[in-house]
Write a protein that binds this DNA or RNA. Structure first.
Lengths: 190, 190
DNA sequence: CGCGCGATTGAGTAATTTCAAATCTAGTGG
DNA sequence: CCACTAGATTTGAAATTACTCAATCGCGCG
């Protein structure tokens, strides 16, 4: 299972076995069952996670308790409440599992230490962060330019696998429309 | 003027004079007049820029030529068409100057080289990229959760200086509402 | 069989857009 | 200094899009 993790690293950098073992030692493993929370509002956010398997939804609840989905995280994705993780503050978001999920977690202290000691890993995280930035820019563009139907279609094209695994109401929340509106669209999904 | 650049670096890393000179040698200087384009759709995007002074708007035009603002870039900000810069592809966006603007540019090749040679700089760019990611997440959240008035108010609180320097119609485009709607809001701006 | 969750449908309402016109403002040339 | 113009902002009214609330449907599972 952890193979996935090493492969993820080796898409961007190359590692000897002993280097990998060293990197690995900075991470802890965690398993969660469906419906368990990985992060809850108010928690102290100690970890950033890499998803080995499973699926998580990250969201905020506002005053009237309506849900806004910040991201889904499935195999190969990184996830945390970055706002809180970065600043060492309490979480403003929730993250819970839509499926049984296996994670590898690293604290901010360990990440900084690892990056300081291994230039390669600093490089890895820089590249990942750049890619993440670009992905968010694309999403912003989609939110700005498209109506409900186009946003839905683009989401479908970008992450078709989500549609098998996630209730439609959550996808609606991800693209910022009501479940009813989404249900009324001419769907690409059938 | 270039002081700003060194200060920007030294907010995150420390540099000796000779280290700074070395870093500096990877960048070129460029000056643009108000209304000049820094990037146009279809250009080959060679540079990522740091803004020494001035103000740029980055946007896309869709089929019916309506404008969507991806970001503003003022003093201290980094800017490019990252999608294109990263992948070495043609620009899908435009960037033009709202004021006379001074930039420092670095090619992707030079950036990779610099990061490879100076761990410190790789660190600098990782940290900046993380902060950028968080800023975009915040913007996505604002787009998802807020109505026109709240989005406008939040923008005002986050970047009050923009309101002196940027036409309201562009701010409207940034938050994804029509200029008329923005004009009808109870403004915090007076 | 019946419960519960997810998805759908209908009807009325609210927010925002669009199109059009009027107003305001700052900068320019005479 | 004033008139003029281009750009920016405001206002009105109609049209559209999406939301909300409420009810119904469908299906898998105990």
């Amino acid at each position: 299972m952890e193979l996935v993790f090493r492969q993820q690293l080796e898409k961007i950098i190359s590692l000897t076995d002993s280097e990998y073992e060293y990197v690995r030692s900075f991470f802890i493993s965690r398993k969660y069952k469906k419906h368990q929370f990985v992060i809850q509002q108010g928690d102290h956010v100690n970890y950033e996670y890499f998803v080995l398997s499973g699926l998580i939804k990250c969201y905020v609840l506002d005053d009237d308790s309506s849900m806004h989905i910040l991201q889904f995280a499935m195999e190969d994705w990184w996830v945390s409440d970055y706002m809180a993780y970065q600043a060492g503050m309490a979480a403003t978001t929730f993250a819970d599992c839509l499926e049984d999920t296996e994670l590898m977690g690293i604290t901010k202290e360990n990440k900084d230490k690892l990056c300081g000691e291994m230039h390669k890993m600093e490089h890895f995280f820089r590249v990942k962060s750049n890619l993440g930035y670009i992905a968010l820019q694309r999403r912003i563009l989609s939110l700005l330019s498209n109506n409900a139907e186009e946003k839905y279609r683009q989401l479908f094209e970008l992450y078709p696998s989500l549609f098998q695994r996630v209730p439609k109401a959550l996808l609606a929340s991800y693209i910022g429309v009501s479940r009813e509106t989404l249900s009324r669209l001419k769907l690409p999904g059938r």
